[in-house]
Computed example of a mutant assay.
Amino acid sequence: MSGSKPVVLFVCVHNAGRSQMAAGWLRHLAGDAVEVRSAGSAPASEINPVAVAAMAEAGVDITGNIPNLLEYDDAYAADVIVTMGCGDACPVFPGKRYEDWKLDDPAGQGIEAVRPIRDEIRRRVGDLVADLVPGRAAG
């Protein structure tokens, strides 16, 4: 790992839904044991309000998050890069641990469609916490 705690970068194209939910879950489940970053190759102007609502239902507040542009320094600093629906839009940085999570895109979906996406992201983030922070309960 790059420092005293692992750095995880979640990346999707718009950094408005899946990656923001994943970052919210990781902060919620891992606390300060993991440094969390999220970004997009073509960030939206705001977070998907339905993703915000779905996370709020689960007790995770992501209202203060904003979509960020994927920067080389963020990728370089990451120990783990999790991509979500990027395809060729997200660059590959050699020597990094990559996970590609195939998840439905919450964009344009209602809350009923976003809840299962939220729950699947939570499950995967829980597995990631268990892997990165041994002994830490994944909530």
Rank of each mutant, 00 (worst) to 15 (best):
S2H: 10
G3K: 03
S4F: 02
S4T: 12
S4C: 00
P6K: 06
L9R: 00
L9W: 02
F10C: 04
F10A: 08
V11T: 08
V13D: 05
H14Y: 05
H14A: 15
G17K: 00
G17P: 07
R18S: 00
M21Q: 04
A22G: 01
A23Y: 03
G24C: 05
G24T: 13
W25A: 11
R27I: 04
R27Y: 04
G31T: 12
D32L: 05
A33S: 15
V36S: 14
S38T: 03
A42R: 05
A44F: 12
S45V: 14
E46D: 13
V52L: 10
V52P: 06
A53M: 11
A53L: 07
A53W: 08
A54H: 13
A56V: 04
E57A: 12
A58E: 15
A58T: 01
V60Y: 09
V60W: 05
D61Y: 08
D61G: 10
I62N: 14
G64L: 10
N65T: 09
N65Y: 11
N65C: 06
N68L: 11
N68Q: 15
L69C: 01
E71K: 15
E71P: 03
Y72G: 01
D74K: 09
D74W: 12
A75T: 09
A77N: 06
A77Y: 01
A77T: 03
V80N: 02
V80K: 03
I81Y: 11
V82E: 11
T83I: 09
M84Y: 08
C86A: 04
C86N: 04
D88T: 10
D88V: 01
A89M: 14
A89D: 12
A89Y: 11
C90Y: 13
C90S: 12
C90N: 13
C90F: 06
F93T: 12
F93C: 03
F93L: 13
F93W: 14
P94V: 02
P94Q: 04
G95A: 06
R97P: 01
R97D: 13
R97G: 01
Y98I: 06
W101Y: 07
W101L: 02
D105N: 10
D105S: 09
A107Y: 07
G108F: 10
G108W: 11
Q109D: 12
Q109S: 14
G110I: 00
A113S: 14
A113E: 14
V114T: 07
R115L: 05
P116D: 08
P116E: 07
R118F: 00
R118N: 13
D119H: 05
D119K: 05
I121W: 12
I121N: 05
R122C: 11
R123E: 15
V125T: 11
D127T: 09
D127P: 00
L128Q: 10
L128I: 04
V129A: 06
V129M: 10
V129G: 05
A130R: 14
L132R: 01
L132G: 08
V133I: 12
P134I: 07
P134G: 08
P134A: 07
R136T: 07
R136Q: 15
A137E: 15
A138R: 14
G139Q: 10
